[in-house]
Amino acid sequence: MDVRQLEYFLAVVDHGGFNRAASALYLSQPSLSQAIRTLERDLGSDLFHRIGRRAVLTDAGLALIEPAREAVRSLQLARASVESVHGLHGGQVDIAAMPSQAIEPLTEMIRRFTQVHPEVSVKVQAAFTPRDVTEMVRTGVSELGLLAAPVGIANGDVRAYSLPEQRFVLLSPPDGPFAPNVPVHHSQLAGQRLIVGQKGTGIRKYVDDLQAQGVALSVAVETEHRVAILPLVLGGTGLAVVTDAWRGWAEQSGALVLDLEPSVSLQIALVSRRAVLTPAARAFLESAVLQAPDPLA
């Protein structure tokens, strides 16, 4: 068993099958299958059930995921540490981020980091809930994560660094039901149709809580595709509650961005693995938390 075999195994897991993993690895599908068969023989256990074109993890395969990620990350750390002896002249930072926070503060974090370390690339991976982010960081899919939650950030197997909170705001088309520059009380959302994200997100919880409090709003569209929210609002399908990270983009697109009363915010945190980080990830973390240097735990 070698690290490359483990990288191949994780590619099949992450891409959901042999064909897509082979494409991502620039390998032929038979070569990848043979490498996995060799790994299975070395371990003495099947890692996947082959069901037609599908590859479903066996119990042994599930048990291998975290050790495999740790082994691959350890090798990456060793290589990156040696390469960084004379400064950061390459490498990659992996960050799992929720959609709204990928707009801000992540874009500003990346801008600041790449100005200092232009030779380091940044890979942003999509995660839709705080649980998704922390799980991706905990299991080594990503070294860093950016998340938002309505209450305190749970730490557990990750280390969390607090960032400035983000307030909820209301997106409306310019000819919508509310006047520009006038805050909207949440009770005024009664009778309105809203576009919402999936359950498990902070902005969805805000809307669900209003309904639980008796605000008679209705859900016009539920979408996991956050990029669809603004076009739907501008098209008149409904209004949307988002964080003020959207403000600049939404206003440039012609939408009204209205404050909500009473003000409610999401807590934002950058999280990292508790294990040793690669030099590139450490440098990104240090750059990102200059204004919030103390970890929550």
Rank of each mutant, 00 (worst) to 15 (best):
Y8I: 05
F9D: 11
V12C: 11
N19D: 09
R20I: 01
S23M: 12
Y26V: 03
Q34K: 15
R37Q: 15
R37P: 00
T38A: 04
L39W: 07
E40R: 09
H49W: 10
L57A: 04
D59Y: 02
G61Q: 07
I65A: 03
I65S: 02
E66L: 13
E66S: 12
E70Q: 13
A71S: 15
V72R: 07
R79Y: 04
Q92S: 11
D94T: 09
P105L: 04
M109L: 15
R111V: 00
T114C: 10
Q115S: 11
V116S: 14
V116E: 15
P118G: 06
V122L: 02
K123H: 10
V124D: 08
A127V: 04
T129I: 05
D132S: 12
V141F: 14
S142W: 01
L144Q: 03
L147N: 02
A149I: 04
A149S: 15
G156V: 00
G156S: 08
D157E: 15
S162P: 07
S162A: 14
E165Y: 00
L170A: 01
L171F: 09
P173K: 08
F178N: 04
A179D: 14
A179T: 14
P183S: 10
V184R: 02
R193Y: 01
I195S: 01
Q198N: 11
Q198G: 05
K199V: 08
T201I: 09
G202W: 03
R204L: 07
V207E: 04
L210K: 00
G214D: 05
A216H: 12
V219G: 00
V219T: 13
A220Y: 05
A220M: 05
E222H: 04
E224W: 00
E224H: 11
R226K: 04
L232I: 04
L234E: 12
G235S: 14
A240E: 09
V241P: 01
D244F: 03
A245E: 05
R247G: 02
W249H: 11
A250Y: 10
A250F: 10
E261Y: 04
E261F: 01
S265C: 14
L266C: 04
V271A: 08
R274A: 04
A275W: 06
A275L: 13
R282W: 07
L285K: 08
L290F: 00
P293R: 10
D294V: 15
L296K: 00
